[in-house]
Design a protein around this nucleic acid. Sequence first.
DNA 1: TGAACTGCTTAATCATTGTTAAACATCATG
DNA 2: CATGATGTTTAACAATGATTAAGCAGTTCA
Lengths: 243, 243
Amino acid sequence: MAITEYFIRFLQRRDTLSPRDLEWLRAVPTQHASFAPGEVIVPADRSANRSCMMLRGLSARSHSLVGRPKERVITALHVPGDFVDLHGFVLAGLEHAVIAVGSVEVEFIDHFELVEMTENFPHLTRLLWMATLIDAAIHRQWLVAAASLRSSAHLAHLLCEIYTRLNAVGAASDYQFSLNLLQRELADILGYSPIHVNRAVRDLRDRNLIRWSGADITILDWQGLASLARFDPTYLDLERQSR
Amino acid sequence: MAITEYFIRFLQRRDTLSPRDLEWLRAVPTQHASFAPGEVIVPADRSANRSCMMLRGLSARSHSLVGRPKERVITALHVPGDFVDLHGFVLAGLEHAVIAVGSVEVEFIDHFELVEMTENFPHLTRLLWMATLIDAAIHRQWLVAAASLRSSAHLAHLLCEIYTRLNAVGAASDYQFSLNLLQRELADILGYSPIHVNRAVRDLRDRNLIRWSGADITILDWQGLASLARFDPTYLDLERQSR
DNA sequence: TGAACTGCTTAATCATTGTTAAACATCATG
DNA sequence: CATGATGTTTAACAATGATTAAGCAGTTCA
């Protein structure tokens, strides 16, 4: 199998890929895998020799807490086209696990291939570096949201971000998307109790900003939602530019 | 001027630098600059052609909030040896400003030099990539801390981290260090009100975990502080390893 | 010396969020 | 169809943190 076209779109949205870059991306060997909801895609440990890219579904970076094994914090969500644990290639290991949220399909790429890429494809190397830095920018924005927004505005920010990211790779349009997240999982993401997440969901519904039934979400009033969340997509670095 | 030895120590703590890598690091031209407390080192905008490395003092990544110009959120703190806005090299621009906290000295490195490095020094490129990924891991840990620790434990985590980072580059030892942060700035970092930060400081003092007068901090009981903060330095990726 | 300024500390009150518990809806299954 | 399991919704109450206000300590500077 080859690297997902979503990832190529992720890169092409931000820079121009040379024919040689594209060829490498399409030719690099990968291993396909599927995961059931809740399964561990990448365990948290000190050694991995491959990284995984999202093909379908939703995954999360899950930190388990020392001394509180039942609790966890989710620090990142990944949609199709995301190179989820690319950072595991350069770091000594992952300090968190990557878990499947809903059913998930991924492609694994051996680190061996990535080393070779860094030796021979400097421009592509900078683009993969960029992909990890966009993750970091998202982390920062989550910190800003956590510190400056409360409950429903905080949830609104997450919804704006996910929709924008899905839309940027062509995986969502018309302000509709599917989000296979339990309220309990949303609580682990936003740092609230599940009950408080429920209050936030109800609030966004009561304000007629969203429709949310099962996994299907419709943003009824993008302006209103984005304004409540003070959402500014600058941090997603969606500008096309030579890098 | 040359790249700070602190940064070389930062890298050597985690991998072995070849003589050729070291030579590049010591030979790359840089521009020295000093900043007074509160000054903007790197403005938040869409274009910069150089990145800065900390020589002395403390700097912060400061996000100003849309619609609330008087408020801000600090998403990262940088100590000597940190390549503060290295990510600005690969991204289209910075979505935040870098400001001086206390008096600061830095070295600026032109992006031109970095492009050349990525073309000719793949190993060094992976190490600089690593430096930005450690920043990202710190962001994630701040998210975990914000979601799972409250007030004094959250502050304790920050203190454990800063001391460990200073100690790792040889800028602090004996559980003593200097932190030129106002309680108001701590509030922008931790996401609390200044009054609540004061309560947290008092709590850590009352528990005999720290001594804090002016900018000088002594950790009286590292075990106690680390245990309260559930601090585990794994995320700082301090293991030496070939990358 | 003393006024003005800045930052730290404390208290009182209020808002937000967590916790516990229970009702309700949906779905798979015997 | 009844049952149990899972997830959502709601309410009552408790804990955490924000806000406002005011006192205090150290500096700067006239």
